[in-house]
Nucleic acid binder design. Structure first.
Lengths: 412, 412
DNA sequence: ATGAATAACTCAAGTGACTTAATTTAGTTG
DNA sequence: CAACTAAATTAAGTCACTTGAGTTATTCAT
């Protein structure tokens, strides 16, 4: 078992790209992100506190704050009286300083959101999409961008787009029409980036929702969590070390097609099946339609209020499969918590959480702080909100940049 | 659905720790890591090439190289004749520059490895452990450290320890005796770090093996892969974005207890079961013992050569479960490849890989480059080698440091 | 009230690591 | 052997950080 010598294999290969080196400019950019994240996650604070948390000098903090104030990204909240000594000047993110736009492209509807840097959802609208071809849809998106960036103060930090995944896969037999034809992740990003002149980030609904939850919801003080999302399919958005798990090809989290054995299956019930078969919006609608009942979001709310037996049956069927999946996720990711979200009324999600019976996993630890499973906080606009959160996340969060093959000049 | 205002909740909370800010010293350290990783992954190269790949100036590269040469971590390979112009001076990692030590603590045996910075396994030994109490074992480890650091040239970069996980979990009913009592991850790390005065990294066998494979095996040019490891149990080491997935509490990858439905199960065969029940060394030994056959590594090699029907039966039983698990992992992680490794003869692992029938997943993409599943390259010493790879990984790889609560002075 | 104590901010100088630009060096080519 | 080329070297300049002394606003004790 001699350990493989690395050199022989790496003779005339194209060089492997590696993390990018840093220089003063990039250094500043990094520290800037650190401070912005600090303010986002901890709320208003003074220079000294920032310096301590970020482990840099207060002077360095001061210089960066000067920049951020000049750009309008920060607000001065005045001095906070706090015991002895000079009271610290509190700084906070300025909601009017910057915005992002989020677009959720679904089968026949476009959801548009405007989010400000303070995490406030400033605007939400739903536009019908008569023609699902990429050209018309992207034109409509570009028009919305032009209109909305004029309507709201602050610079536009970027655009986030949510589209159903997976991308570029052959023969994924799902239940229901989850994918759009003629669309690719990259073409959408490139097209829009060119039309609008700002960064564009594309992801699937589950990942976007997870990022939304990470920035503005239950994930705010959590660095490892799994979010199960009921959308076009049933997907997973995994946050690992404060970063969304995208996978090598951007298709991570496709749990809908995973075959799970239901936990504590009642005798006579179905055995192992793809998660989406019984634990998805699609399966719920299927059951309601079979019973001749309507299935809009409002209807679901009503069904739950009225104690609909069909909804109840769906909950009973879905819970064992979902429980098994959560067990799998806990054992694989060892997260701090699991969050359930999606296009279901909050009360229904709560009912679903209550019915779960998760097997014993590595999450059975002593002194657990967070609930093992909880309902998401960002509500039904989750994915569209998450879409808007994507550029925000990418512009603000400190990260390890990689030098992608052949590009970008050196400075900054 | 108003997005939750963040400030109200974060009033009098303990501050959230965030990524660490950077200053010139930390910047240098980062670039140093970048260059070391560059050399490790691409083999020898000149200043200019490094500068281009790391996207910093050749001068900056020159300064860092000067440091590294002075420390003995680099070797000058002379000029490479390469067409016109001044031929570049090739630099390479100096195998005699630094070493790491790896210890795999198993039920009654301690495996010790010495790895140099060039990725060469310099030494491997197996020591019986009569007393499994922490005190005696750690003393033995400390003695080995003292002895080996004198025997090999180069500075000792750190110590890696592999122990069976999971840690700190209640009521995980596994098959077989996979956990050690009276041990905790942190106490081992602290104890050894104090005794030896170098950084100590502790992880489970699967994660360590994955890191070993990442640095010196099939993972060298892969940034996303899943490694399934047959060791004390059956574990997963997931590499996401060149980093091992450890989870919030260090217990990620516990796939042995996940209940999977076998793929294409033969009629009459067992249904859903924990992966480890049928796809583990334990289950193989169980079958061999029931048939009255010996089960050492050498025996397994012989069984395979002789076409043992028991081994064959195990392969037939294990493959459907393993296939299902690989399908799950592909859908969750969307990796570039899946690697199978562990304490089995290479030929047996190959046979196992051949029998797999993985369901359709997001890995069914067009133009796939790497094999979906392949056997690991680092062999049976995998975990012990991986243990030694841990400090190496932590000392060399560029990463995003986090400011852990309350510690460490600011400079550098 | 007043002064000491305290804690955060500010200013100015110093330092480290990087970039830029000009020069040197060592090979290749005609 | 001179012209050409590309890498390395040298020296100067820049940027962002740290350090340390001084300033300011508030609390507490007299």
């Amino acid at each position: 078992m001699p350990p493989p010598s690395k050199t022989d294999a790496s003779k005339a290969r194209t060089p492997v790209s590696v993390a990018m080196g840093k220089n003063p400019g990039r250094n500043r950019n990094h520290n800037r992100r650190v401070l912005l994240e600090l303010l986002r996650r901890n709320g208003p604070m003074g220079r000294k506190a920032m310096a301590d948390l970020a482990q840099i000098s207060t002077q360095a903090v001061g210089n960066i704050i000067e920049d951020l104030m000049a750009e309008g990204l920060l607000r001065d909240l005045g001095r906070l009286r706090s015991g002895r000594g000079l009271p610290p000047i509190q700084y906070a993110l300025n909601p009017d300083g910057a915005i992002t736009l989020g677009f959720e492209i679904a089968v026949s509807e476009l959801t548009v959101t405007v989010l400000d840097i303070g995490g406030n959802l400033r605007h939400e609208e739903h536009v019908p999409l008569p023609d699902m071809a990429p050209g018309p849809v992207l034109s409509m998106v570009a028009e919305s961008v032009a209109r909305l960036r004029a309507d709201y103060p602050g610079q536009l930090m970027g655009i986030g787009v949510v589209m159903p995944g997976p991308f570029g896969i052959e023969g994924m037999s799902g239940v229901g029409p989850t994918t759009l034809h003629g669309w690719t992740e990259t073409s959408v990003a490139q097209d829009l980036a060119q039309r609008c002149g700002v960064p564009v980030y594309v992801d699937n609904d589950a990942n976007a929702a997870a990022v939304g939850e990470l920035l503005f919801g239950k994930g705010q003080n959590v660095s490892h969590f799994c979010q199960i999302y009921f959308g076009a399919g049933t997907g997973l958005g995994a946050i690992v070390d404060d970063q969304p798990l995208r996978g090598a090809f951007g298709n991570a989290g496709e749990i809908g097609h995973i075959i799970v054995a239901p936990v504590d299956a009642a005798p006579g019930s179905a055995g192992p099946a793809p998660l989406e078969r019984f634990a998805s919006l699609y399966s719920l609608r299927e059951m309601l339609e079979a019973a001749g009942q309507p299935a809009s979001l409002e209807d679901l709310r009503r069904h739950h209020r009225d104690g609909s037996p069909v909804l109840d049956a769906w909950l009973s069927t879905a819970a064992p499969y979902l429980s098994a999946m959560i067990g799998i996720l806990e054992n694989i990711f060892d997260p701090q918590t699991v969050i359930i979200g999606g296009k279901l009324p909050g009360a229904v999600l709560d009912a679903l959480v209550e019915r779960l019976a998760i097997p014993s996993t590595v999450a059975n630890r002593t002194g657990e702080r967070l609930p093992r499973v909880q309902r998401g906080q960002t509500g039904q606009a989750s994915a569209a909100l998450g879409a808007a959160a994507l550029p925000f996340f990418n512009a603000i969060t400190p990260r390890l940049d990689r030098a992608e093959d052949g590009l970008a000049p050196m400075p900054d």
